[in-house]
Write a protein that binds this DNA or RNA. Sequence first.
DNA 1: TGATCGCAAACTGCATGCACTTTTATCATG
DNA 2: CATGATAAAAGTGCATGCAGTTTGCGATCA
Lengths: 224, 224
Amino acid sequence: MTQAKRKTVTRTGTTVEQMVRAIADMIVTGIMVPGERLDELSLAARFEVSRTPVREALRELGAMGLVGREPNRSAIVKTVEEAHLHAMFEAMAELEGICARLSATRMDADERHALEQEHRASMQLVTAGVPEDYAAYNTEFHNRLYRGAHNDHLLELATQTRARLAPFRHAQFRLSGRLSKSYEEHGRIVTAILRADATAAGKAAYDHVSIVSDASTVFAVARV
Amino acid sequence: MTQAKRKTVTRTGTTVEQMVRAIADMIVTGIMVPGERLDELSLAARFEVSRTPVREALRELGAMGLVGREPNRSAIVKTVEEAHLHAMFEAMAELEGICARLSATRMDADERHALEQEHRASMQLVTAGVPEDYAAYNTEFHNRLYRGAHNDHLLELATQTRARLAPFRHAQFRLSGRLSKSYEEHGRIVTAILRADATAAGKAAYDHVSIVSDASTVFAVARV
DNA sequence: TGATCGCAAACTGCATGCACTTTTATCATG
DNA sequence: CATGATAAAAGTGCATGCAGTTTGCGATCA
């Protein structure tokens, strides 16, 4: 049968897909900074492949909006300039609002139960005060909201937008007090959803993201 | 397809970009039907290029969500199955609603004026009764709404979603009466925006898309 | 000194080739 | 006659090569 080459058959498919993920990760985590050139030869060397798969990966990253490409010019990590950053946070807030609103009426009993349980459990993380741990939980919380809307496309848009904003939201939980504030805001969202109060849920989620936006912008401006 | 040799520099970018556009167009206009296989060699022959740029084009179309790709398998025109179709229309409605709501408070005088003028002018298209012409105007109308929100990211999400839905919305204006109905609904949106009534604009746009959704679903189901 | 031109190195765009995988056609077997 | 094995054909994944474009740098000249 097929011998699993060196790249074992983890859920990653082709070489290109692995590279897309790897590069996207570097951009999103800030290892690669906006404006940085991504020349094909270096990347090929770095990943120990030829230029062909690198080119395909860059093409895909371009379509994803993470890198900019112009003919006969190196791909560059896209600068999310301030205006667009604000736009993205605003869009994110709207999307979260929609997801929460729909979740309020569409989540089934299991989903509601899980949401509540997890939220309660997260209180420990707040008191523990480890930003990384809470950030991980936070991501899961929001994903739960996106899934709760029972709308695959919305899930896709929200996930995609969130991924692009990740680098700018990275340090938010280090701000003093933000951790417990976040917990409180989550609480409002959870309560509204459990009550099936769509409007309240939507508003709570919208506000939640807006606040994050304010908190993060400082950071983003400081860094870029 | 006979003018591949010399690329007229100005108009289109690279070969790949041209191909992406061409293929996307074929999918969107229904020339290529969902499920159809897009094998690299045939496309290469068709466009008189080698497989390399074809592969890159398919990669990009995959990222755009128009074609599905799995390792070692031909790319296929994506079937937007019914469940997801409904999800996408719903998401589209939400996005349009947001754009209209934001447009109501953010459009500047020029934009408002242009919106109104164009809408008025479109009445002629209704009486003329040529679905293709009205469809073209309709696209422009909606783009105007997206831009009016003054939010690049939202614009991107809306454009992207709309592109994916295009094949399923294609025949809507052939339905008897849909043309003038559409005009009326546009009118409601325009009026609300000119009045800067954000809530009304949002609702009108949401409803407008929802109705299109109903009208198109019949078509989609019948065809797929 | 500084600006400009020209050339070579670096890099991208695309073609071609080969290895491996999937699909299809053929044929043997119950 | 259906079924399963199997080999050829078709197709994808990636490497390599070459031509054209961009870029960096040094020589030339005002």
